[in-house]
Write a protein that binds this DNA or RNA. Structure first.
Length: 586
RNA sequence: GCGCCCGUAGCUCAGUGGAUAGAGCCCCCGCCUUCUAAGCGGGUUGUCGUUGGUUCGAAUCCAACCGGGCGCGCCA
């Protein structure tokens, strides 16, 4: 109810002006949801905030403002409580009017953005020399979720997959394969990605131990960057393999429309980036490397800390390609908002990159650049999650285990209830529930904090989990089936009547959808969506217990059917923002 | 050593300037002749890491300290 909040704000600002005259124009009135339902729906603490400025006790201000404010068409009489809180209880007739206004709108009354922004979400970004592992799950899921929310809000969204497809890691791999498995570099399908991963490991080991091999690897990098056809072809085969494997994971996660634009894309722009920084007077040569010294960062001795943009050997590192990427996104693509969905441990890398880009004058002031950081996925030991053997966990395996566990649970449940479902539907259920549970668990936690990965908790079917939301949805579909009703064909003339408290609570929650969307685009916290959906599902389940739908007399029956319809749309839409699908039956 | 993030109920976590700090899990009790009980209702649980400070008001802002995670000059 963003419009209601705006209206309340305006009315209180007018009342303030009329009570205290000029000078009160500058008073910003904050309207917030009531801290406790017993106090009503909204509250304003303006009397407390302005007490000092107006040199009056809060309660006196509250009295004066209430005497002036006109809210008859919206609320019951405002009440003053405690030290000077003003509590507002919105009239049921007002809620009825609002819910009836959106009753046939699948967007729940939410308008698309008046001024769509060009938004780039950088997400996933796996290292193409390796398989995707558990470390990629958060960036992929959170990034996709934010992209979906921005799309829903009507913005122009690009999901950029900034893959690691360049630099030393590939030189090293090509050098190693040239030696032990030359076929891999000339035939597209000579090795599998699994082989590639073990080759990568061996190559890395060799690289760390063997100076001669390091030289050879660096030469391969130079060849690659210089466009040597042999090396380039080998590089392309490696990428093909890797891409194919990554696609399996993206399909499982239902993440689409990724635009792969890796580090290699910016290769040609790197010299320009350095020249730009030189022109801007930011570039300093130090110990043979080209650097930009940072503001607000110190090195270990407390001295100035540089961001190295060109190494002493003339090569470039990832700071340069990240600068090139940022410059390209802002100056060529004209992005107005760039979200970097990247782990929190990169804060000391991205902060300097943003700083240098701004100091170079590439980024207009109104462009929003955010490091959407997230914590580590930990094992039970509180360290980065690994297998018992100390290996990284493949993302594909992790998702498969989620589906397997969901499938097993489902089978035993169906057997217990003597139900039969088609194999196709069972697969669909196992996937929706298994993948949904993994995604939901991650998205329901505040992204900033680390979390301990726990399959049992993740796949638990009660509490704030995906299945709880999906089940509420299934219950609604059940009503539609049982009553042989088509929600989309309910009579246009029918009205929602909010007679019971459970109906009123449900309607209010439905009308809060727009506030949730706004919060998420502001704070970039997907857990707010989960919180909203959990409350919505709880309110629906309470409604379901206390308010019989199909057996109710008209016009209550149709009124409740409309509420069911709207709730189903809200859950479906909300889950779709998380990238989770709904089921007709469970 | 320096920097960033985190510390809230037995466990997992919400809550980032306002009223008596919330939810889920766990545990106990009650509710299926009625739209799927993967549900609903009721009950127990707190030095908000510690100590100071700012404020009419602090879990929330500031400082120091303690504990945990992560990172730190030419890998990405």
């Amino acid at each position: 109810m963003l419009d209601l909040v705006d209206t309340l704000k305006l009315r209180f600002e007018e009342a303030l002006k009329s009570a205290y005259g000029n000078g009160s124009d500058s008073y910003e009135v904050a309207i917030s949801p009531a801290s406790n339902p017993q106090f009503g729906d909204y509250q304003t603490n303006l009397a407390l905030t302005l007490s000092k400025q107006l040199k009056q006790p809060p309660r006196a201000i509250a009295e004066a403002v209430i005497g002036k404010v006109d809210l008859k068409d919206i609320c019951e009489k405002p009440e003053i409580a405690g030290p000077g809180f003003i509590n507002l209880k919105v009239a049921t007739s007002y809620w009825e009017e609002k819910i009836n206004a959106i009753k046939s709108d699948p967007r729940l009354g939410i308008a698309k953005a008046k001024h769509p922004r060009k938004v780039i979400v950088e997400l996933s970004s796996p290292n193409m020399a390796k398989e995707m592992h558990v470390g990629h799950v958060r960036t992929t899921i959170i990034g996709d979720c934010l992209a979906r929310v921005y799309e829903f809000a009507g913005h122009d969204v690009t999901r950029l997959n900034h893959v690691g497809d360049w630099g030393t890691q590939f030189g090293m791999l090509v050098a190693y394969l040239r030696e032990v498995c030359p076929d891999a570099l000339t035939k597209p399908d000579a090795i599998s990605l699994g082989d590639l991963v073990s080759f990568y490991r061996q190559a890395k080991k060799r690289f760390d131990a063997d100076a001669e091999f390091q030289n050879i690897s660096r030469q391969e990098v130079v060849k690659l960057q210089g466009g040597d056809p042999d090396t380039l072809r080998a590089w392309k085969y490696l990428l093909e393999q890797s891409r194919h494997e990554a696609q399996i994971v993206y399909d499982l996660l239902d993440v689409h429309n990724l635009i792969e634009r890796g580090e290699s894309f910016y290769n040609e722009q790197l010299p320009e980036v350095v020249r730009d920084l030189q022109k801007a007077g930011l570039c300093v040569e130090d110990q043979g490397a080209k650097c930009v010294f940072l503001e607000g960062y110190k090195n270990e001795q407390g001295g100035p800390l540089p961001l190295i943009i060109q190494k002493s050997d003339g090569g470039y590192n990832y700071a340069t390609s990240d600068l090139a990427a940022l410059r390209y996104r802002v100056t060529v693509e004209r992005a107005e908002e760039i979200l970097y969905v990247v782990a929190a441990d990169q804060a000391d890398h991205l902060g300097p990159v943003y700083q240098v880009a701004r100091r170079a004058g590439w980024v207009p002031d109104n462009v929003r650049i955010e490091h959407v950081q997230f914590g580590v996925v930990q094992g039970e030991d509180g360290k980065k999650l690994k297998t018992r053997a100390g290996e990284t966990i493949r993302l594909k395996d992790l998702l498969q285990e989620g589906m397997d566990r969901a499938r097993a649970e489902l089978e035993s449940r169906l057997a217990q209830e003597g139900r039969t479902e088609s194999e196709e539907y069972k697969q669909q259920m196992a996937r929706a529930i298994g993948i949904g549970a993994v995604k939901y668990f991650d998205l329901s936690l505040n992204r900033i904090t680390n979390y301990v990965f726990n399959f049992d908790k993740m796949l638990s079917l009660s509490g704030n989990t995906a299945p709880y939301m999906m089940y509420a949805y299934v219950r609604i579909r059940g009503i539609e089936r049982k009553g042989e009703i088509d929600f989309s064909k309910l009579p246009a003339s029918a009205k929602v009547i909010l007679g019971e408290p459970v109906e009123l609570d449900l309607a209010k929650q439905l009308l809060a959808f727009d506030e949730m969307i706004e919060t998420v685009t502001r704070d970039l916290l997907p857990n707010r969506i989960c919180e909203y959906l959990f409350e919505l599902s709880q309110k629906f389940n309470q409604f379901y217990e206390k308010a019989q739908v199909l057996s109710a007399p008209e016009p209550v029956r149709t009124s409740r059917l409309i509420l069911c319809h709207l709730t189903a749309e809200a859950i479906k839409t909300g889950l779709s923002l998380l990238g989770i699908s709904v089921l007709e039956k469970m």
